[in-house]
């Protein structure tokens, strides 16, 4: 497939800056492009993209495709699908990567359907096979019980990448690259889906995905009120509170803090799992943590298999003493 060349990234922005996952995509994209001996490009959509374009070049991009259109400042699924599909048709990249984000989940399958190509979602590892120069994609399946290694035979080889699974490059302002304008032929007025309103839920304290410390509770916590104990510890460690599936389903906590294969993926320095049995689909969401600590009454709980440290105890007795000691230590 000699006519397909280069690696293309679909960039995402927040207040005019590249998001964390976009920089991670550039990090892995740079490596894949080097292994192929080809160029790395990124697509940016919105208005006022010059800062983000500079950032992208510093993070490894050779080319920045600028789809300048103020209407794209507000994410619109139909419009973004259209712009990204058209660019893929025009520049025919060998590899096209998106983040496994809300936008990536929305538009990647639609682009793949339009291009009639395979798509591997939620990849945690990507590499170029030296002989065939094809992209080997590794992704968790069966709720994290298994990993699958797949290769797409169709081009562009499309994948979405799980956040925090790849490392960004150290930004280097001396890197050079070029910006290329992209013709945007979308009229949001004619799109079938109309945006009525957007409601942002304000987050108090540290964002769960970005927290260095996560204190997570499971079915063993027993009630909404008991989560206050976890809040206290999280505050002390300057971290955030998360939960496994049961507390979210029972309505003890907001569904937005579910950690697991189908919820948030977290990779803090310390992950404290309290009253969590350790279902595989939950573990899939916290396995990347540097240190996992488990507190559980059941010595046979699955969570101890993936933890670094643990105590076998009722959290109601253990947690206050633990928080107290931490206060003493941290000061």
């Amino acid at each position: 497939m000699a006519e397909y060349k280069g690696v293309l990234i679909c960039g995402e922005l927040i207040e005019g800056r590249l998001t964390g996952i976009s920089k991670e995509l550039l990090g892995i994209g740079r490596k894949l492009a080097d292994d192929l001996g080809e160029e790395l490009s990124i697509l940016l959509m919105g208005s006022d993209l010059s800062n983000a374009a500079r950032e992208a070049i510093a993070c490894g991009a050779n080319k920045v495709y600028i789809a300048a259109q103020p209407l794209l400042d507000n994410y619109h699924c139909d419009a973004c699908t259209e712009v990204a599909t058209n660019l893929c048709r025009e520049i025919a990249p060998s590899v096209f990567l998106l983040g496994q984000t809300d936008m990536g989940r929305d538009i990647a399958p639609r682009i793949a359907a339009r291009l009639k190509v395979a798509l591997a979602v939620d990849c945690v590892e990507l590499r170029i096979e030296p002989d065939t120069k094809l992209l080997i994609q590794t992704r968790p399946v069966y709720g994290g019980n298994a990993l699958a290694e797949v290769v797409s035979v169709t081009h562009p080889q499309m994948a979405t990448v799980r956040a925090k699974s790849m490392s960004p490059l150290e930004p280097d302002e001396s890197r050079q690259g070029e910006s290329i304008p992209v013709k945007v032929e979308v009229d949001i007025e004619t799109m079938k889906i109309k945006l009525v309103e957007r409601i942002k839920q304000p987050i108090e304290g540290v964002k769960l995905e970005d927290a260095d410390a996560v204190v997570a509770g499971g079915a063993g916590i027993g009630s909404a009120g008991n989560f206050a104990m976890l809040e206290e510890l999280a505050k002390l460690l300057k971290g955030a509170v998360g939960a496994s599936r049961v507390p979210c389903q029972e309505g003890w906590v907001s569904q937005s803090i579910e950690i697991g294969q189908t919820g948030k993926i977290v990779t803090p320095n310390i992950y404290i799992a309290i009253g969590i049995s350790g279902a595989v689909q939950h573990i899939a969401g916290c396995l990347g943590s540097k240190c996992i600590v488990a507190v559980n009454k059941d010595p046979d709980a699955n969570i101890f298999k993936v933890a670094d440290f643990g105590i076998v105890a009722d959290y109601k007795e253990a947690l206050p003493a633990f928080t107290e000691k931490c206060k003493e230590i941290i000061g």
Binding site: V117, A118, A120, I136, P140, V141, N145, A146, L147, A148, E149, V150, V151, S152, V153, T154, I283, L287, I292, K305, V306, A307, D308
Partner: peptide, 14 residues
Amino acid sequence: RIKLLKLFTPTRER
């Protein structure tokens, strides 16, 4: 379109 090369259980005992 797509080939499955390998399906395996990750080792994760710490």
